[in-house]
């Protein structure tokens, strides 16, 4: 069994593509359901950990700005570590990620042993 990092990214910046409050609430429920199903299948390799949505961005000149939506369009909405046999299974699991409904992406990376 291998461990995989799933990174969820989405455009949080462009006003026109942001979900409405109602859509966001439905979206939240689907994350909860998805996380629950991963837990019940024992697919999570680490406990779920939410991260603050703001944070800081450190630039090459060491200047600090409020992040993370500084200059790039897509930002990280969160990440989880899962258990899967190979990339095929990990990608199959990632297909259930609700971020996809909002036009986001999931990056899948295997942990190097």
């Amino acid at each position: 069994m291998n461990e995989f990092l799933l990174v969820f990214r989405r455009d949080f910046k462009t006003k026109e593509v942001q979900p409405s409050p109602e859509e966001l609430q439905a979206h939240l429920s689907r994350w909860r359901e998805w996380f629950r199903s991963l837990e019940s299948q024992d697919k999570l390799a680490r406990p779920l950990q939410p991260w603050e949505s703001n944070g800081r961005v450190l630039k090459h000149d060491k200047s600090v700005t409020d992040g993370p939506y500084a200059e790039i369009k897509e930002s990280i909405g969160g990440f989880i570590v899962i258990k899967a046999a190979d990339y095929e299974e990990a990608v199959e699991i990632a297909k259930g990620a609700p971020i996809l409904e909002l036009g986001g992406t999931v990056e899948v990376r295997m942990a190097v042993k």
Binding site: E22, Q25, R36, E39, L44
Partner: peptide
């Protein structure tokens, strides 16, 4: 990990319908 599993699973209460929309306005 086991603890987190329990924590989330025990949280069975559904969100109030339209909570976000109501509070947004």
């Amino acid at each position: 990990m086991q603890k987190a599993f329990l924590f989330v699973s025990m949280e069975e209460r559904a969100l109030l319908p339209h909570l976000f929309r109501t509070e947004y306005q």
